[in-house]
Amino acid sequence: MTVPVDMSSEQKNLMGVLSTRQAIYLGVGISVVYSYVPPLFAIVNLVAGWVAALIFCTISILPVAFIVGFFGFTKVSKYNMNRDYFMLIKLQKKTQYGKWRRGV
């Protein structure tokens, strides 16, 4: 008997497009960008004008967008695992080394 749906993928809860994990990444990314872009725009606008401020703010958003896109929306196809969960496992691997001895 075959299963007609993919059981290993995430449930897309929000309008059938985003999973809850992806929505959290987007929410955190948007809030981080919203916390630093308006003051940055105001400062650069006073110094160099609104066109330069718009360009500078757009460039400053790119690292946050890259991080959110990388961890929230990419998968490691070799392991069929989301990128953030894969990185969490890789980071925890170093803490699992220890000295093992035989017997009690």
Rank of each mutant, 00 (worst) to 15 (best):
W100S: 12
I30W: 05
L40D: 04
P4D: 14
L14C: 05
Y79A: 15
V32W: 03
Y79F: 15
L40W: 02
D6R: 14
F66Q: 07
S31M: 11
Q11P: 10
G69K: 02
Y85D: 13
Y97A: 10
N80G: 15
K78N: 09
R101I: 05
I55C: 03
M87F: 15
L40A: 13
K90S: 11
N82R: 14
R102Y: 13
T74F: 09
N45K: 10
A42L: 12
A23W: 01
C57K: 00
L91Y: 10
Y79M: 15
P38E: 03
A53Y: 02
G27K: 04
D84T: 07
Y85S: 13
V32A: 10
F86R: 08
P63F: 02
G29W: 00
K94C: 12
I30F: 06
T2M: 14
K94N: 10
I24H: 02
R102C: 07
K93D: 15
V104K: 15
K75W: 05
P39A: 07
M15R: 05
W100H: 11
A48D: 08
T58G: 12
L54I: 01
V68E: 04
L46T: 14
A53R: 01
S31R: 01
L14P: 04
L14N: 11
V47G: 09
K75T: 11
L91W: 08
V68N: 09
S77F: 08
M1P: 12
S19V: 03
G49M: 04
Y97G: 08
Q92D: 15
T95E: 05
Y97Q: 10
A23L: 10
R83M: 15
Q22L: 08
V47W: 10
V17W: 03
Q22V: 07
Q11N: 14
S31K: 05
D84M: 13
T58K: 00
F71T: 01
L46Q: 14
V76G: 08
A53W: 04
G16R: 01
V64C: 12
